[in-house]
């Protein structure tokens, strides 16, 4: 019984609480992205900031919500690569559009 209670507490401290903090962080980062959009800010630095925020949000969802942070390097690398390729591609396309 003591072991069960210990494991429940482990699950709460290692899974639920970090995910709750991630959820709140995601809301804050969404607020920042929205504010940038509302102020209609543009330009290379702003767009790069938005993309970095998006990458961080994506990594948070994949790592904590989807549980990939507890998996092998291969799974995490696939997800991180996808985020980097998509985010990097969007950044390159934006720079191409400036010319």
């Amino acid at each position: 019984m003591e072991n069960i209670m210990h494991n429940i507490e482990n699950q709460r401290s290692q899974f639920i609480r970090p995910c709750t903090r991630v959820w709140l962080a995601l809301l804050v980062l969404t607020g920042i992205t929205y504010s940038i959009g509302r102020m209609e800010l543009g330009g290379t630095q702003i767009v790069m900031l938005v993309l970095i925020i998006t990458f961080i949000k994506g990594e948070m969802v994949a790592g904590f919500f989807m549980g990939l942070r507890k998996t092998s390097l291969l799974w995490r690398a696939i997800m991180a690569s996808w985020l980097l390729i998509v985010g990097g591609g969007i950044a390159i396309a934006y720079l191409v559009g400036l010319k």
Binding site: L26, T30, T33, Y34, I36, G37, E40, G42, V47, V50, L51, I53, T54, K57, G58, V61, A62, F65, M66, G67, V86, G87, I90, Y94
Partner: peptide, 26 residues
Amino acid sequence: VETGASYWHMVDLLWIILFPLVYVIR
């Protein structure tokens, strides 16, 4: 439950990229 959850998180992840891409970046 974990299988359904993983799919739902993917739907969320896609929107997290779609929103800034279509609505914000200019």
